[in-house]
């Protein structure tokens, strides 16, 4: 009898050892696939696609009507993206303004909806690392963002080529790809921000509102704030102060503006998409003496905005890091 019990127990122990299959990647993979499927099947994704699609069409239409009167026939393919038509903004400015909404819409209820529906409890009791939940969500969101941005960007170019018969050069194609990559990072930053809010706020509505508020602040009010501060520090009310302060005023204004991811991104992509932009900072007349007007090569344009790219990537990491830390330190308990 005793023998039998022993045997049974031994079997059980053996079985148990087989059953422990600890592999963090399994969980991450499963979560990533589930999130991706959720996004792609959701109405939200469809709405975003329609929004971005229709603005792309509108901007392309505007660009095509305006392109006829372009004085400069170099880099015409890039102008499809950067030219604004009669009262229709360019694709570039559309994306800078509306891109964040993709990120916000995909992330604002990432964690708190799981919490309120009671699925987070179930999720954390599975044999997966806790961080794979938030990493899986972020990666899936970024994958969706990349899909939207790259497909819309290339579709716009392709339609432009079809309509105009332009033949893009290799450099132009590269510039567009770099522009789209910048855009993905920019939108992913907003995804990280909205995930951060979804960790901090209990209700999805609150986190949506908070992230939209931040978006509007950066897109609209940051430049006002920057000019107010710059005016206070270096007033340029009369001719004398203008003479003394202009340089500092402008530099400070620019510096503060660059804290905003919206400005940082806009500046970076307009440099990438306009080979004619030779500097992103103040240039004095002195420095311009003897300069030959011409286009920058791709490498030089990239060099000009490398700090922007670094800054944007750093912002992304800070936002995601905040969300990550917040999530890892939070109590699991639902209420």
């Amino acid at each position: 009898m005793r023998e039998m019990v022993w045997k049974k127990r031994k079997n059980m122990d053996g079985n148990m050892k087989n059953k422990i299959r600890v592999n963090g990647m399994t969980g991450l993979g499963a979560l990533y696939h589930k999130e991706l499927a959720d996004h792609l099947k959701s109405k939200r994704f469809l709405i975003l696609l329609i929004l971005i699609g229709s603005t792309s069409f509108a901007s392309l239409y505007g660009a095509l009507t305006a392109l006829g009167n372009a004085e400069d026939s170099n880099y015409l393919f890039l102008k499809l993206y950067t030219t604004s038509g009669s009262s229709i903004p360019s694709f570039l400015s559309f994306i800078a303004l509306l891109g964040p909404i993709i990120g916000l819409a995909l992330g604002f209820d990432a964690i708190n909806s799981e919490r309120s529906s009671g699925t987070l409890n179930r999720l954390v009791s599975q044999p997966i690392y806790r961080d794979s939940i938030i990493i899986g969500k972020f990666l899936a969101g970024t994958a969706v963002i990349a899909t939207i941005i790259y497909s819309m960007g290339t579709m716009l170019g392709a339609m432009g080529v079809l309509v105009t018969g332009l033949k893009p050069s290799g450099e132009e194609v590269w510039r567009v790809l770099i522009f789209l990559t910048f855009t993905v990072i920019y939108v992913a930053f907003w995804l990280a921000i909205s995930i951060l809010f979804s960790v901090v706020c209990r209700h999805a509505a609150t986190s949506a509102l908070a992230s939209i508020a931040l978006w509007i602040f950066f897109a609209i009010f940051m430049s006002l704030v920057a000019s107010i501060i710059a005016n206070a520090m270096y007033p340029i009310n009369d001719e004398y102060s203008a003479l003394v302060n202009s340089m500092d005023h402008y530099t400070l204004n620019l510096g503060i503006n660059r804290l905003s991811p919206y400005y940082l991104y806009s500046e970076a992509v307009s440099t990438i998409m306009n080979p004619g932009v030779r500097s992103v900072n103040v240039v004095t007349v002195d420095q311009l003496v003897g300069a030959v007007s011409g286009y920058l090569s791709l490498g030089q344009s990239l060099l000009l905005v490398w700090p922007h790219l670094t800054g944007l990537a750093a912002l992304l990491l800070v936002a995601f890091g905040g969300a990550y830390l917040g999530f890892m330190r939070q109590e699991v308990r639902a209420n």
């Binding site: 059953k19 422990i20 600890v22 529906s117 009671g118 699925t119 409890n121 179930r122 044999p127 639902a334």
Partner: peptide, 13 residues
């Protein structure tokens, strides 16, 4: 967690 199942109160799906 790979050998322990947890049924939370108010389980959600």
């Amino acid at each position: 967690k790979s050998i322990t199942g947890y049924l939370p109160d108010n389980v959600g799906f």
